[in-house]
Design a protein around this nucleic acid. Structure first.
Lengths: 338, 338
DNA sequence: CCTGTTTATGTTATCGTTAACATGACCTGT
DNA sequence: ACAGGTCATGTTAACGATAACATAAACAGG
């Protein structure tokens, strides 16, 4: 019978290597001053015992968890995934581990996640968007760690911001279409308050149209997020039926835009001949579909990378005041219109 | 000047509420036996102090972290994201938090991640695929926690398995195409060993073709993963140039299949009229593109959900022996061929 | 009314690591 | 040869929670 021995600890390693536990602890930190011979002996002993370092104990004693908490609305979204990737890549060199949660576009769920995350004592917390429940906001304000809001430019930020104005970005698209002589422009999506960024884009569309003195009522609902290709196709169907003289459609995202495009293809509506379609996000599909989709690139991965860099700056004391980093989204005019 | 007071602990809450720290601890566990009056007083005190429960200390003492470690090849992949979602949803009711890492299709990176994760003392670990570095495998074997391999049916599993045979799934597609009378069938992707599942699918293609006595050499490389739409389009370009008499193409994923389809559209090649295209994964785009893509649905979300259920069963002692759960992928014949 | 059980709470020791301080050995320059 | 410094290692006492055990009060059944 094999002994049901417990997981070995540093003390066990120390005993086998003939040193004190403290020296073992030092040997596991690369930078510490331990003689090479001692370190080798310790690592050998640790290997022989099958010792696995216990981060939990380390975290408790050192008060450093090396966690960065991140909440995003959805994992099944290439834009957010890109931000996450930029973030993860920027944090990895420093050994910071992301604690990921998705809110499913639900602020109450976000609140629950934030509460859970703060209990884990992360070094920083990144949230998507600038709107939160009052309690969530309070928790973030009192967390005592850097807070970064992304994918938005909130009027009253909690702490740091790395984002862009969704409304402004869509205004750019409207202005471009109007400059090209179009007037009957529609917007698909952004109809529910749940998708905060979608709603902002829709608001931006309405404001921009009104600023140009144009009819801003060609609004097609797409339902609750995640708004995907299918919803885009259905919305396009409704648009073609109710407002057949529409000249261009701006969609809340490339996914709905592509769905809308496929609906046109199924119905034999020529894009861009009879109708222009624009999306948002510069997903891969926007660049490769036939026709390629006119869209807006908000540089999601860059947003993640900048957020990561900001976090490191704050943790290292290089950045003291709340940073307010604005990303400039880029208008990409492609074959689907513009 | 405001006092730089430290974060309050249970002891502080206990003092304010006039109880012992142990009672505070109990009050924070919903199931424990604390009188309603006491609990209210404690929660009130905690709120007044801005107390935030410290999971790190709790984990160290109770030897329970409520973490489940998960490694996936890429976050920017809707299939893996679906698995993750199924997993997260299944684990959330039990308060298990996912510790996510992505390997970027790199086994050495996977090894590094596994090592890091095990230090966090997760309750279980989920890995994608059945191939790992020898050291990674050893670490998993000795981890003393449930190990679940997914997205594959390894010959020699480490512990539990929730997956399917990538090779068998593709065989099903080949058999179907052959039954429909085709013989000149090509395969795009799976050419690098990095994408283990892609390579398995390619192997499955070759084996199935050879089993039918057909030419299994129409293999188009798509490069290193992540193989996406663009690579699919480029590969299709090469296929049309070098093997123009090909009747059908099976692609390593729907993303490359859609890219391939767009290339046909750009070149005026009729799909399915002149060429059939099939993908893998049943991504949303497969169902909505025009023509819709013939593909294979491996039920990624279900895989995640089943994995979560398995983890709970194991943690609760309901499942003792290593489980071996095979998912049956479904052939979806759509307009692009079949 | 007494014993046995349940309920609400307290006491003590500990989870495994490391911050902070201490120490002895070995330099190093004058 | 010695004060001052560096280097490698050791000692002690936490970090903040809770498992395990203990106890007092309330309750229940005969």
């Amino acid at each position: 019978m094999n002994t049901p021995r417990k997981t070995p600890t540093m003390a066990d390693v120390a005993r086998l290597a003939g040193v004190s536990p403290m020296t073992v602890s030092r040997a596991f930190k690369t930078d510490s001053s331990v003689s090479e011979a001692t370190r080798d002996a310790i690592l050998k002993a640790a290997d022989d015992l099958g010792y696995v370092f216990d981060s939990t104990a380390s975290s408790l004693r050192s008060q450093r968890t090396d966690f960065v908490a991140v909440t995003i609305p959805s994992i099944n979204n290439a834009n957010f995934a890109d931000t996450l990737r930029g973030l993860a890549e920027g944090l990895k060199p420093r050994g910071l581990q992301i604690l990921l949660g998705y809110t499913d576009y639900d602020m109450a769920e976000e609140e629950r996640l934030i509460e859970q995350f703060l209990r884990r004592r992360p070094e920083a917390i990144v949230v998507t968007g600038g709107r939160h429940t009052p309690r969530a906001r309070r928790m973030l304000e009192n967390a005592g760690i850097p807070v970064i809001e992304t994918w938005d430019l909130p009027e009253d930020p909690i702490g740091h911001v790395v984002g862009f104005s969704n409304a402004e970005a869509v205004r750019g698209m409207v202005d471009h279409f109007v400059a090209r002589g179009l007037t009957r422009i529609a917007f698909i999506g952004g109809d529910t308050s749940r998708d905060t960024r979608g709603a902002d884009r829709r608001r931006g569309f309405i404001a921009a149209m009104q600023a140009k003195g144009l009819d801003a009522t060609r609004l097609i609902a797409a339902g609750a997020p995640p708004i995907s290709m299918r919803e885009g196709a259905l919305a396009m169907g409704r648009l073609l039926q109710t407002l057949p003289d529409t000249e261009a459609v701006i969609c809340v995202s490339d996914l709905s835009a592509f769905g809308a495009l496929t609906e046109c293809q199924r119905r034999g509506v020529d894009v861009p001949g009879r109708l222009w379609i624009a999306g948002f996000g510069d997903y891969e599909i926007a660049g490769i579909s036939v026709p390629a989709l006119t869209t807006i690139n908000p540089f999601p991965r860059d947003m993640g990378a900048r957020t990561a860099a900001l976090i490191l700056d704050v943790l290292d004391g290089r950045q003291l005041a709340p940073a307010h980093i604005a990303i400039a989204p880029e208008l990409l005019i492609r074959q689907s219109g513009g």
